[in-house]
């Protein structure tokens, strides 16, 4: 059984069937890509996984526990972190403060009242935040106002914040959308390194086939709200049904 088990999930928006009978199993410590043309239901599925949407029917189990009916912050505390298509960071705060918030969330949970002690005197938090920044090559931007960083740096900060929480499942929503090829390759290398360094499951939703085929161990193809096939990258590339439904419309970059 996988770390994430999606069973018979259906979701309707009015007359539109966004997800129909979705079954998906993501194996622990794998890199699993979910691809599909626009409107295939990729984002809806992701929003179901993180608790933003509640499906009409079906079940979603993370490590044997149901995530349905839980709020996004509760699901996050269970061990699922999400990286957004446009980097979501605390733009008004410094890079270091961004990191520290993630470290506090890991150590102290969803709410703790620590109103008097100085945050800079929390040695373990400061050290961990500095370490994370170091490992992401962001150490020299420590004091920078995070909104004024480049998009690539914002993306790395967001990933660093997610990793500081030591999630068991990292969800990435088109992590390279809008990036230049060089930045895209850097992101691929970064994700490979992350995978190498720790026990983590990565699920990635992506348009860019280059990214998908460089990273994924398993690929699920979604079309019209339902999984078409699930297989290894090699088999997906040659799969006639996939070519017809998806790859046929797009230039294959790989």
């Amino acid at each position: 059984m996988g770390i994430l088990e999606v069973k018979n999930v259906n979701k309707r928006f009015g007359g539109l069937k966004a997800l129909s009978e979705v079954n998906l199993s993501i194996a622990e410590n794998s890199v699993h890509a979910i691809i599909g043309p626009n409107g295939a239901g990729k984002s809806t599925l992701l929003n179901v996984l993180v608790g933003k949407l509640i499906p009409d029917t079906g079940s979603v189990l993370f490590d044997g526990q149901s995530v349905l009916g839980r709020t996004p912050y509760e699901i996050n505390q269970m061990g699922i972190s999400r990286v957004f298509q446009t980097p979501e960071i605390f733009g008004d705060l410094s890079v270091m403060e961004n990191m520290m918030i993630a470290c506090f969330a890991k150590r102290d949970g969803a709410f703790t009242m620590q109103a008097i002690g100085s945050m800079m005197k929390e040695r373990d938090i400061v050290e961990k935040a500095e370490q994370m920044l170091d490992s992401m090559n962001l150490a020299d931007k420590r004091g920078m106002h995070s909104a004024s960083m480049s998009r690539g740096d914002k993306r790395r900060l967001e990933i660093a914040m997610c990793l500081a929480q030591e999630p068991r499942l990292l969800l990435l929503d088109e992590p390279t959308a809008g990036m230049a090829r060089a930045d895209t390759n850097n992101t691929i290398d970064l994700l490979k390194k992350i995978k190498q360094d720790r026990d983590i499951t990565i699920a990635i939703i992506e348009h860019d086939m280059h990214v998908v085929f460089s990273l994924a161990e398993r690929i699920t193809v979604l079309a019209q709200g339902t999984p078409l096939v699930e297989d290894t990258p090699e088999n997906i590339k040659g799969h006639p049904k996939v070519r017809e439904a998806y790859l046929g419309e797009t230039q294959v970059a790989a």
Partner: peptide, 19 residues
């Protein structure tokens, strides 16, 4: 710090496991 996080980005805050 958490109060400033609320002002800055509540989406990121909830997806960082904070209420």
């Amino acid at each position: 710090l958490m109060l400033r996080a609320i002002k800055s980005n509540q989406t990121r805050m909830t997806y960082t496991g904070l209420n």
